Amino acid sequence: MTTTPQAVRRPSPRPRRRATPPDPARALLPAAEPVRMLDEDGHRLPEQPDQPEPDAGTLREMYRRMVIGRRFDTQATALTKQGRLAVYPSARGQEACQVGAVLALRDNDWVFPTYRESMALVSRGIDPVEVLTLLRGDWHCGYDPGARRTAPQCTPLATQTIHAAGLAYGEARQGRDTVALAFIGDGATSEGDFHEGVNFAAVFRAPVVFFVQNNRYAISVPLSRQTAAPALAYKGIGYGVPSEQVDGNDPLAVLAVLGRAVAHARAGNGPYLVEAHTYRMEPHTNADDAGRYRDDAEVEAWTGRDPIARLETYLRAGGVLDDAAVAGIAAEAEALAADLRTRMQAEPQVHPLSLFDHVFAEPTSQLREQREMVRAELAAEEEA
Rank of each mutant, 00 (worst) to 15 (best):
H140Y: 14
C141D: 07
C141G: 09
Y143Q: 05
D144W: 07
G146R: 13
G146Y: 14
A147K: 15
A147Y: 08
R149T: 03
T150G: 05
A151R: 05
P152R: 05
P152G: 06
Q153N: 01
C154E: 05
C154H: 05
T155Y: 10
T155H: 08
T155S: 14
P156Q: 11
L157T: 12
L157I: 15
A158S: 12
A158Q: 07
A158G: 04
A158M: 13
T159F: 07
T159V: 15
Q160E: 00
T161G: 01
I162L: 15
I162V: 15
H163K: 07
H163A: 14
L167P: 11
G170E: 11
G170H: 12
E171M: 14
R173Q: 14
Q174E: 14
G175W: 12
R176N: 14
D177M: 10
D177V: 12
D177W: 04
A180Q: 07
L181A: 04
A182S: 13
A182T: 12
F183D: 02
I184G: 02
D186N: 13
G187I: 11
T189R: 00
S190P: 00
S190T: 11
S190L: 02
S190I: 04
E191I: 07
G192C: 03
D193Q: 11
F194I: 07
F194L: 11
G197Y: 03
N199K: 03
N199L: 15
F200V: 09
A202I: 08
V203K: 08
V203S: 11
R205P: 07
A206R: 05
P207D: 02
V208S: 04
V208Q: 08
F210A: 07
F211V: 01
V212H: 05
Q213W: 15
Q213T: 12
Q213P: 10
N214C: 04
N214Y: 02
R216E: 13
S220N: 12
S220Y: 08
V221S: 07
P222I: 10
P222A: 10
L223V: 09
L223S: 10
L223T: 13
L223H: 06
Q226W: 06
A229K: 02
P230Q: 07
P230L: 01
A231W: 00
L232F: 02
A233Y: 06
A233E: 05
K235P: 02
I237Q: 13
V241L: 05
P242A: 04
E244C: 09
E244Y: 05
Q245W: 01
V246Q: 00
D250Y: 07
A253P: 00
G259H: 05
G259N: 00
G259Y: 02
R260W: 03
R260E: 08
